[in-house]
């Protein structure tokens, strides 16, 4: 059943008329062509599709579009301002914290959300928060380094 939904994505207002059961992930990718947010499992178990909705981390594959009505969404494409990267993006680059990179946008969005809630996370808090995100290249050690580095950068 089609519905009309208003949402703001990376500061841009959109009115989307489509099936309200479609996931936010699918609408971002297929309607808005914001393909930086990736499909990983469709069931909220890998974190690959993480975005911010009203500043909080959500797994966009699990959110029907109808629930995003009136919400503000930030995707990986919305983090940098012009040529200047977000500190979390910088930290991932500096640590070389990606292999295939397919999980990277989800990892970065999760980190941005974490540092908003906990600017000084302990290692245990980082692991606990990030544990939903899968990396099948198993690049976890460098990703953990990137999260720690990002926390330091954002405190400066």
């Amino acid at each position: 059943m089609d519905a009309t939904v208003n949402l703001t994505v990376n500061g841009v207002k959109w009115t989307v008329t489509t099936d309200a059961e479609r996931s936010v992930l699918e609408v971002l990718r297929e309607e808005l062509h914001l393909t930086g947010t990736k499909y990983g499992c469709g069931g909220g178990r890998c974190g690959t599709c993480a975005v911010l909705m009203d500043g909080k981390r959500v797994l966009s594959c699990t959110i029907p579009l109808s629930e995003a009505d009136g919400k503000a969404i930030t995707t990986i494409e919305g983090l940098a301002s012009g040529d200047s990267l977000h500190p979390v993006q910088e930290a991932f680059l500096e640590e070389g914290a990606m292999q295939c990179g397919y999980c990277t946008s989800g990892m970065i969005m999760a980190t941005v959300a974490l540092l908003k809630e906990k600017p000084r996370p302990t290692d245990e808090e980082i692991v606990s928060w990030m544990n939903v995100n899968l990396c099948r290249c198993n690049g976890y050690p460098k990703i953990l380094n990137a999260v720690r580095r990002a926390a330091e950068k954002m405190r400066r």
Binding site: E30, H33, T35, I76, E77, L93, M98, G101, T104
Partner: peptide
């Protein structure tokens, strides 16, 4: 330790993986 040449596109979401390719009038 040369970094992956397109690593910036990986952290900005700009890189198009095979599943990210969009063509005009494309169907799924």
């Amino acid at each position: 330790s040369v970094a992956r040449p397109n690593n910036r596109d990986l952290v900005t979401g700009a890189h198009r993986y095979p599943s990210d390719i969009v063509r005009p009038n494309m169907l799924y």
